[in-house]
Design a protein around this nucleic acid. Structure first.
Lengths: 233, 233
DNA sequence: GTACGATTCATACAACTGTTTGAATCAATC
DNA sequence: GATTGATTCAAACAGTTGTATGAATCGTAC
């Protein structure tokens, strides 16, 4: 890609955000320099500090721009499901799907960040940088609370402590999958890559897996660990 | 922690590796500078280039030092299980446990890296840096192939393509959990943190979740997505 | 057309980056 | 005790980093 003027957005501010979004994925937050970012955006170096104040606040802006509408949609989707259910518990799969489908919509809409932002978000969950670790909790707090409550209602036999554990696992799976690194090159021997680009296919595989883990029997309750449901479908 | 001489290892080479291991977690690979690393190791700046050649090779060395014995143990453990099973398929839980238990042993043994390295490994899976992305596949190739084969034998009804998908999800969960970031601060409202430090407790929760996902029914096979196994234990 | 606030620009700043150098120091061999 | 090879050291290298500055340019309202 040409480093000069490849970004087509209108105003400077958004061109910077677009370029930063792309470069943070390619190189990470620390390694992507303001000079590289402004060069790709076709914008003067000083523009970042003029419009955002600092690099840290640029990082923050990259996330909030996408995350705010995304999370609003996630809550709206859950609202609608619960309104239709009229107090009854929702199927676990439906809750998981509601959460994931919003991510898919973003991935498909270039104006909302497309695949780029979804991958960036996945990466951010493992990023040790201080600014990022402060940013994500406050952005996700409300969404997590809402979906956790919905799942608790659908899984009344699951102790809250166990639900928290499994929420952990679920977000880990989503984060890594959305990051799309495929570090282990599992797909190298398999034509799964082409499938994976289609975010809907991803969901179709992800939801059953997560639902399976979420509804799995508790550990060690009956003592032995001999096979209990020892096979697939 | 005192930045000067807190590392107790004997020779310079290992003190550098220890310090780098710790700082890569705290700050990331790009942000952790050689000056910070050598300062914490109580070692001259030039020592890194003398002993390792470059920062890139230092990063590589940090991983291979721990990963080589860890992966050898993982394969040995699976070897033993399969020897005892005499050709019969192993329970899914046992395979998952064999993989995870080695990680726990490392986490408990300070001389093998302790919690520090386990967390670093989790982080590395989301790291976009080129050196890391080239390092992990070659380090994990053999282990993944062996465990994949074992799982395929235990899940004969699961298509290989689907198994690859689910392996993806599993490694994502493990990576994020081991990374131990808790970005969403799920545990903040819950006294789960103290539990989580104990790696064995983690496994006791993780194995049922992963086994549940691995053995879940295939998606969309029967068309509708209405609840099919709509609850916990 | 001129005045004005907002934006862009080239340039400079000090601090930090990974790496290199050559002298100083060390431990072991003869 | 001199010699030698390995290791450590302080110092400097050129390049990059995020940020700040003040002049130049822009579009608009008067």
């Amino acid at each position: 890609m040409n480093p000069i003027e490849p970004v087509l957005a209108a105003d400077t501010k958004e061109r910077i955000l677009d370029a930063a979004e792309a470069l943070f994925i390619e190189q990470g937050f620390a390694a992507a320099s303001l000079r590289t970012i402004t060069a790709r955006a076709g914008v003067n170096l000083a523009a970042v500090n003029y419009h955002f104040g600092s690099k840290d606040e640029l990082i923050r802006a990259v996330f909030t721009r996408r995350l705010e509408p995304l999370n609003r949609e996630r809550i709206a989707l859950l609202d609608e499901l619960e309104r239709n259910a009229k107090g009854r518990a929702l199927p676990v799969e439906q809750i998981l799907e509601a959460f994931l489908i919003s991510g898919v919509r973003v991935a498909r809409d270039a104006r909302r960040g497309g695949t780029l932002f979804v991958r960036l978000l996945g990466r951010a969950f493992a990023e040790p940088t201080e600014q990022v670790r402060q940013l994500l909790p406050e952005q996700f707090q409300e969404v997590v609370a809402r979906y956790k409550a919905a799942l608790a209602l659908s899984l009344p036999a699951l102790p809250e402590r166990e639900l928290v554990w499994r929420l952990h696992f679920i977000f880990g799976t989503i984060a890594y999958t959305m990051g799309g690194s495929d570090v282990l090159q599992l797909t190298s021997s398999h034509p799964l890559k082409d499938e994976g680009n289609d975010a809907e296919t991803l969901i179709r595989h992800l939801v059953p897996f997560l639902a399976g883990g979420l509804t799995a029997p508790l550990a060690g309750a009956e003592g032995g660990r001999k096979s209990r449901r020892q096979n697939s479908n």
